[in-house]
Amino acid sequence: MPAYTVHAPSPGGADLRATDKFVFVRDGFHFWAMIFGPFWLAWHRLWLALIGWVIVVAAVHAGLSSIGVGRGSILLADIVIALLMGFEASTLRRWTFSRGKWRQLDVVIADDEDTAERRFFERWSQKQRGIVNDQWAVDRGGPPPTRNMPGQQFSNPPPLPAGGIIGLFPEPGGSR
């Protein structure tokens, strides 16, 4: 099963409403990064890695050509660089996130990204319940809210209006 690392932007803090900015990076070999290396780097906005890739490929080509190596050997060097790109693609993404002041929150083992998200948010929301008092989060699987729970906006009943009861019967037990 693949492992996913979860990254979040640091300036946002531990706010439950910023979860749409979390990024899940799959660890392992990336086939499309091997086949379309520079396009994959540009798609994921890994600009410094893209510049490094261009410099390395140009240096390898120039170096091998200057010593008189044949085209077959240069092709073999390109295949090795492509394989390295496929193996190190997720490391380059993590490196870019760490440079951009992102923090790694967790590592999740799952079959696919959707399952990884579900597992991560189940664990993370349980940890955050005690830390963050989030008025917008609703636990759909829990019991209905009750009164006198600290931190809940619906814990205290609303105050009665100045005139008493509002409705068809302004006085309890009164006639129509």
Rank of each mutant, 00 (worst) to 15 (best):
I35K: 04
A14E: 15
A14N: 13
A33C: 03
T19F: 03
V23M: 07
F29P: 14
V6E: 01
G13K: 05
H7V: 04
F29A: 11
F24T: 09
T19K: 12
G13F: 02
V23C: 11
L16E: 14
G28L: 08
D20E: 11
V25D: 06
F22C: 10
A8I: 05
F29S: 10
A33G: 06
P9L: 08
A14S: 14
F31T: 03
D27E: 15
G13L: 07
V6F: 01
V23D: 00
F22I: 12
A18E: 04
F29L: 09
A18Y: 00
L16Y: 02
P11F: 15
R26C: 15
W32Y: 08
F31P: 03
F31L: 06
I35T: 00
H30D: 13
K21D: 15
A33F: 05
F24K: 06
T19A: 04
H30I: 08
F31V: 00
H7R: 04
S10R: 12
G12A: 13
M34Q: 00
H7T: 13
A18T: 11
G12K: 06
R26G: 07
L16F: 00
A8C: 04
A8E: 12
A14Q: 10
H7F: 12
R26A: 15
D15C: 09
K21C: 02
M34W: 01
A18K: 09
A33I: 05
T19Y: 04
D15F: 00
K21W: 05
W32A: 05
H30W: 10
S10H: 12
P9G: 02
F22Y: 15
D20G: 12
V6M: 03
F31G: 05
L16T: 15
A8F: 02
G12I: 13
V25A: 03
V23T: 09
G12S: 10
K21N: 14
D20I: 01
I35W: 02
P11I: 09
D20P: 00
V25Y: 02
F22P: 07
F29H: 13
A18S: 13
G28Q: 06
H30V: 12
W32L: 11
H30Q: 12
R17E: 14
G28T: 06
V6C: 08
V6D: 04
R26Y: 02
I35N: 02
F22D: 11
P9A: 10
V6I: 11
P11Y: 14
G13P: 09
A8V: 09
F22K: 00
A14L: 14
G28D: 04
F29W: 05
A8G: 03
D27I: 05
A33Y: 00
K21Y: 08
A18P: 06
R17I: 11
F29E: 07
V6Q: 01
R26K: 14
I35V: 15
V6Y: 03
D27Y: 03
